[in-house]
Amino acid sequence: MGERKVTVAAEVGLHARPAATFVQRAMKAPMDITVTKMNSAKAPVSGKSILAIMALDVRQGETVVISAEGEGSEDVLDELAEIAGTP
């Protein structure tokens, strides 16, 4: 399973437009994608659900782990990491 640890760069965190852009890209991927907020008791959520992403309440400067498994997942993870912030 591939993963990327990303510090969220957007001033609004992983909300609104950044979350929508992230989910739009994730939806194009054939594999499951999960997002976990570091240092949080919350379970991983689907990277393809805008409501789940926004419910994580990820703010600027916080770190998330984006995970995916399958053919092409490394490229997808690179793109999602770029959308979310700074790897």
Rank of each mutant, 00 (worst) to 15 (best):
L51S: 12
V45L: 01
V35I: 15
V35H: 03
A20H: 10
E62N: 08
F22W: 07
M54Y: 07
A29L: 04
L56V: 10
G2T: 07
M54R: 03
A81W: 13
T63W: 04
A19V: 06
I50L: 02
T21L: 13
V64G: 07
V6G: 03
S73D: 13
K28L: 14
A26G: 09
E79H: 13
R59I: 00
A84P: 13
D57M: 10
I33M: 04
S73G: 07
I66T: 06
A16Y: 11
E79F: 03
A55Y: 02
D32R: 11
K42G: 07
E82H: 14
E3Q: 14
S46P: 10
L77Q: 08
D57P: 08
A19N: 09
G47R: 00
E79T: 13
S46K: 01
L80S: 05
K42P: 06
G70W: 06
K48D: 03
G72L: 05
D78W: 00
K28E: 13
R59H: 15
Q60L: 00
R25V: 12
R25A: 11
V8H: 02
T21A: 12
T34P: 08
A26W: 00
G47D: 02
A16V: 12
A20C: 05
A26T: 00
D32G: 07
A81S: 15
M1Q: 11
G61E: 09
Q60G: 03
A81V: 11
M31D: 06
E11C: 01
D78A: 15
T34I: 01
I33C: 05
E82D: 15
G2V: 01
E71F: 06
R25Q: 11
V12S: 15
A55M: 12
K48R: 10
M1S: 14
Q60P: 11
I53Y: 01
A52N: 10
E71S: 14
H15D: 09
E79W: 04
L51G: 09
G47K: 00
P18D: 06
V23M: 02
E69C: 06
D57Q: 15
A26S: 11
S49H: 09
G47E: 01
S67C: 05
A19Q: 06
A16E: 08
I50W: 04
D32E: 15
D32K: 13
I83E: 04
V65N: 08
T36G: 03
G72C: 09
E71I: 07
E69P: 10
V8N: 02
A26F: 00
R59D: 05
V58T: 06
D75V: 12
A10D: 15
E74L: 08
S40R: 04
K28H: 08
V8P: 07
V8F: 02
I66S: 03
K28S: 11
E62T: 09
R4H: 08
E79N: 11
A68R: 00
M31S: 12
A43Y: 11
V64S: 05
Q24A: 14
E79V: 13
I83V: 15
T7I: 15
A84K: 08
V23P: 02
P18Q: 03
S46A: 05
N39F: 08
M38F: 11
L51T: 12
P44K: 01
I50Y: 06
V65Q: 12
E11I: 06
L14Y: 07
E74G: 13
E11S: 14
V8L: 03
M27V: 02
M27A: 12
V12F: 09
F22L: 05
A41H: 12
H15K: 12
E74F: 05
F22K: 00
G70K: 05
